[in-house]
Amino acid sequence: MSGFAALLAEDRRLTILRTLAEDHDYSVNDFVLKRALAQLGHDVSRDMLRADLKWLEDQRLITVRRMENDAIWVATATEDGVDVAGGRPHPGVARPAPR
């Protein structure tokens, strides 16, 4: 992955974690996540979003429930994922900018 592509992937992953952390139960489906990413400057395909979700799941930062024969994915931030969304460093995820 090129330097710029890696930066984009890291920022997308942070954006996903921050979106999940803002939800009352830390869970959002992939359709809502795709719209949230687009509003925040990452208009990506569903395949790319799901690749990021798989990566975050492999890192144990989220869990993913696959429903309706894989038609809907519901991502839920783990405790570690919420911590990373709040600024704890994790390789492959951008750090939030200071507010």
Rank of each mutant, 00 (worst) to 15 (best):
Ser27Lys: 02
Ser27Met: 02
Val28Cys: 11
Asn29Asp: 15
Asp30Trp: 02
Asp30Asn: 12
Phe31Met: 11
Phe31Trp: 11
Val32Thr: 15
Val32Arg: 15
Val32Cys: 11
Leu33Lys: 05
Leu33Tyr: 08
Leu33Pro: 03
Lys34His: 06
Arg35Leu: 14
Arg35Met: 14
Arg35Trp: 11
Ala36Met: 15
Ala36Asp: 13
Ala38Leu: 08
Ala38Pro: 02
Gln39Phe: 13
Leu40Thr: 12
Gly41Leu: 08
Val44Ser: 04
Ser45Lys: 07
Arg46Cys: 03
Met48Asn: 09
Met48Thr: 13
Leu49Arg: 01
Arg50Trp: 04
Ala51Met: 03
Ala51Gln: 09
Lys54Gln: 10
Lys54Trp: 07
Trp55Asn: 04
Trp55Ser: 04
Leu56Tyr: 06
Glu57Cys: 10
Asp58Pro: 06
Gln59Gly: 05
Arg60Tyr: 12
Arg60His: 14
Arg60Asn: 14
Leu61His: 09
Leu61Pro: 01
Ile62Met: 00
Ile62Trp: 01
Arg65Cys: 06
Arg66Glu: 15
Asn69Lys: 01
Asp70Phe: 10
Asp70Gln: 13
Ala71Ile: 02
Ala71Asn: 05
Ala71Trp: 00
Ala71Gly: 01
Ile72Val: 14
Trp73Arg: 14
Val74Leu: 15
Val74Met: 11
Ala75Cys: 12
Thr76Tyr: 07
Ala77Glu: 04
Ala77Cys: 01
Ala77Asp: 05
